[in-house]
Design a protein around this nucleic acid. Structure first.
Lengths: 338, 338
DNA sequence: CACTGGCACTCCAGCAAGAGGAGTGCCAAA
DNA sequence: TTTGGCACTCCTCTTGCTGGAGTGCCAGTG
């Protein structure tokens, strides 16, 4: 149905349209790409491509524009991810190497990705669920007020304050701290509940309410903090979208403000492979004209979290995918070192 | 030079222009506001106002538009801050009362402010400099690796990892922790340096390098973390700016991405009073068409940090100022309670 | 002296008409 | 199967026009 030449034509259409932002006609195609055939032949191919839904005409007697389906085919079969140039790689490396702590790493990454791709960048903080515990600290703020501080292997810190049912001494607290840490340090969040469930039994009866409170808070923090944080950069790049602004940009900005939407954009699956979601595939009407390129990153083989960029469906997919992949790799390295 | 009626005319121009977004002419003014004079008289007044630089004409035979100077006069002498309605107040209260921790308070505040004013909201985290220390915690991650956790009275937590020059035992660490806390808990950041400067002398000679390292890290954290955090919301409201989008919105989005600029917008002074900065007063060419309304907030009489909104110079100043002031008060209360 | 009505003038916004051009689809021929 | 030719469509850009809103000025009035 679609022979090689038709695919070549589609590829050429996508490339030209991305470059010029204007519907591309048969004559221009024949000139710019040496396909070895005449405009008339290309027209025939285009007619077929249109019938199959890969391209469309804004109106009669205009050039063709790729549809979401066309971009999908392009991404799946016609595009080769474009590796970054050496200078670019070096720039990434040095820029990220200067980071001080986790916040800084994430902040630099998102800005880097935005400037590199000239699009909106999104980076998710290393997920707590898939992280392991480095340390649990307990502090008394007041006789019946305890603060729990959770430190993860990725350097993230979460805190929680609770009211103790009874005043508690430093001894008990130290004991509790030691026993909790003995059980959970190095363990994954998901496994903690099991590991501490019988901990209360080893304490005296009168101390149990306190222990129970602390454990409940710990588990609560683990569960609730699965709410993942994401950061954005490069929203100014949305202005490149087109000239018909208000209608186009507004819903996108609104969508970007909702972290829930952002997280869904990056994709919930743990799957670290690169994902390109095009136009309506985002399942969000405000983002019907945008595509998202996302990939997992992490220190090991498993993805800790995701990052990616969002741009118009008419984006430079090979270049964007190359940049996203490269940045993800470098961030993974940085995190592995620390 | 400017009698009362001319001021009335200016006020009417500002109000109408803000409401309609269109240059306002003498006839429309005479109809909508009962100034008791004819359009011709108003025209004369307008001529004077224009000569003095308070209003301007986009082009001959168009209505008048307030200039920055005109808005300034309006804000300083003609506008009464509009208090919020009871339902609005209640909504604020209940929305903010649901907050769990500091992050949540700040996050809710900024979203609230954005929806309330229909503009871009900016909230600065309670400043560390002006905060006091609630607790300093020291943890050993590895024999020669120490983590320092700093907890402030506003619930903010900062952490820092350091390498110890020598392995250190739990005893020393506990001792050090106790002595540091004894000195600094409840103290303001700015005073800490003095309070701990002679702390090393009370330790054995061989322990001093470690103590010195810890103290250096503590001070370092205090200094470096003065870098203040700000959060944004409501950027989608920028699309209300006007119809000539790309040119207008782009530089604004760019400016908003730079935290340095944001912080300057809120104003560096500790001064908690409400500040309105109009157009060019922002000293930032990308923000020449925007105004910023900011105010300090805090639990006591002194401002811990600032919050505000940014919108087009043609904004509803009385309403915006009312909303900003109200939100600042409620946030202050919430922080005082916790 | 301040205010008012009248009047001529300016200049933008919006619409209609027309020219130009890019692109298509179809068909007959190679 | 490919190609050149040709008629047709329909957008875009320019031009010209008109209506209207608004102004500035001036002479008249309380």
């Amino acid at each position: 149905m679609l022979d090689d030449r038709k695919l070549d034509v589609l590829r050429a259409i996508v490339q030209d349209y991305v470059a010029t932002q204007e519907p591309v006609g048969s004559k221009a195609l024949a000139e710019r790409h040496n396909l070895g055939v005449s405009p008339a032949t290309i027209r025939n191919d285009m007619a077929v491509l249109e019938e199959e839904g890969y391209i469309a005409q804004p109106h009669t007697s205009a050039g063709r524009v790729p549809t979401d389906k066309g971009y999908r085919l392009f991404v799946d079969r016609l595009a080769n991810i474009k590796p970054l140039s050496m200078p670019e790689r070096r720039a990434i490396q040095t820029f990220l190497d200067g980071a001080l702590d986790l916040d800084d790493v994430v902040g630099r990454t998102v800005r880097l990705l935005a400037t590199l791709t000239h699009q909106v960048a999104v980076v998710q903080y290393p997920s707590l669920t898939r992280s392991t515990i480095r340390h649990v600290e307990l502090l008394t703020l007041a006789p019946t007020r305890i603060m729990l501080v959770l430190i993860t292997n990725t350097g993230r810190v979460e805190q929680r304050v609770m009211d103790s049912p009874a005043p508690l001494g430093e001894n008990l607290l130290a004991d509790l701290r030691a026993r909790i840490n003995a059980r959970v340090v190095g363990k994954r969040f998901a496994d903690v509940a099991l590991l501490v469930q019988d901990l209360g039994e080893s304490f005296h009866a009168e101390e149990r309410p306190i222990v129970t409170t602390v454990l409940a808070t710990l588990l609560d923090a683990l569960v609730e903090q699965q709410e993942e944080r994401v950061v954005l950069a490069g929203t100014a790049n949305l202005t490149r979208f087109g000239t018909d602004f208000p209608m186009t940009i507004r819903p996108v900005l609104e969508a970007l403000e909702e972290h829930v939407v952002l997280l869904r954009l990056l994709g919930e699956s743990t799957e670290p492979a690169m994902v390109v979601r095009i136009g309506h595939e985002n399942m969000h009407e405000g983002l019907a004209a945008t595509s998202v390129v996302s990939v997992g990153y992490g220190s090991g083989d498993e993805a800790l979290a995701k990052l990616g960029v969002l741009g118009p469906t008419r984006m430079d997919y090979p270049g964007t995918m190359g940049a996203v992949r490269a940045v993800a790799r470098y961030v993974g390295q940085i995190l592995a070192e620390s």
